[in-house]
Design a protein around this nucleic acid. Structure first.
Lengths: 161, 161
DNA sequence: GACCCGGTACTCGGATATAATATGTCCGAGTCTGTACGG
DNA sequence: CCGTACAGACTCGGACATATTATATCCGAGTACCGGGTC
């Protein structure tokens, strides 16, 4: 099991978008060039973000994407679920119903114990992601990235927004 | 992203094996019949468990699998990792290195901030799985399953061990 | 009667096909920009 | 000089191929059991 690479791309793109001045849009082409990934495919990830109302888009020249709300109102979980879907990582196929000893027509009273444990773990994962906001990421990047590189990148992006 | 169905099967099989009297083996054929899944494919999941030293196998007639240690020493995480692998669900492909502003030869000082957040969530998921032991599952099943069905299933399995 | 030996049937384990999903690419519908024109 | 209409170019969005992974199946190597033969 592995998250798709689009999740990583979407997160990086949101990080860039969160640093953009209000009202400016950034095109897929620019985001793809900055990250060195295929433009056409990256657009699928951005489409997911758009449908989830995390970003909003504009057409035409000078069009592109921007965040639909403040970075302090967007969590990692929002982004991950926009790309990967909201369904649990564990799906219970109810194989217990195939138990040859099970009386026909018997109806389970509660969810499978195994599924409950797995879903609980899934929830722990989501809670962890929910606890980190895009604004938190912004602060982390400020301290992690050398000031020089940070400023250069910012200007590079701004010149194309 | 979705866990493979083998994970579910492996967990159910371990649940059965944990109720087995010491020294008895249970064949793939029986486990497959009980759960209503293809015998040949289920064996792959059991192979994973075997390689992870969670279960041990014996050949020949009356052969099969049994737990390699007590159910209080086997966690959900052990089983999930045996089937899914131990690598993180998030893989960082270091796309930040493609940043056109990045000086050539620049060496990152610490791991990508985004990856750190994702890995932390992955760890939360694993910790949750680590906290539930096979013996805990046994207790849950005892209270969840109707006593009648529980006993019947136990005898059904025992007659084939 | 007890022990040894060989055949047999059953087991696991890995190598091999098929289906589903992730990855990557393409083209069309729509709209904003910039310009030329008219008032 | 200003407002308006229009052509053009650029954008996103979804439809279309390919590569990788999960699913399902098959066959061979190996071993414990069982029966017969021998001491």
């Amino acid at each position: 099991m592995q998250l798709k690479s689009q999740v990583e791309w979407a997160l990086h793109c949101c990080a860039i978008l969160s640093g953009l001045p209000a009202g400016r849009y950034l095109a897929t082409k620019v985001l793809a060039e900055f990250h060195g990934v295929p433009k056409e495919y990256l657009s699928k990830a951005l489409q997911g973000l758009s449908q989830a109302k995390i970003v909003e888009s504009t057409l035409g020249p000078a069009g592109g994407y921007r965040l639909a709300r403040g970075p302090d109102r967007i969590s990692f979980l929002d982004i991950v679920e926009a790309v990967e879907g909201k369904s649990s990582t564990f799906v219970c196929s109810e194989i217990r119903k195939n138990n040859p000893c099970r009386p026909t027509g018997h109806c389970e009273t509660k969810a499978c114990s195994i599924a409950r444990v797995m879903w609980q773990a899934d929830q722990a994962w989501r809670n962890s992601l929910k606890g980190v906001l895009l604004s938190d990421l912004g602060k982390m990047l400020e301290t992690d990235i050398p000031a020089d590189l940070y400023r250069k990148s910012f200007e590079w992006v701004l010149a194309r927004a």
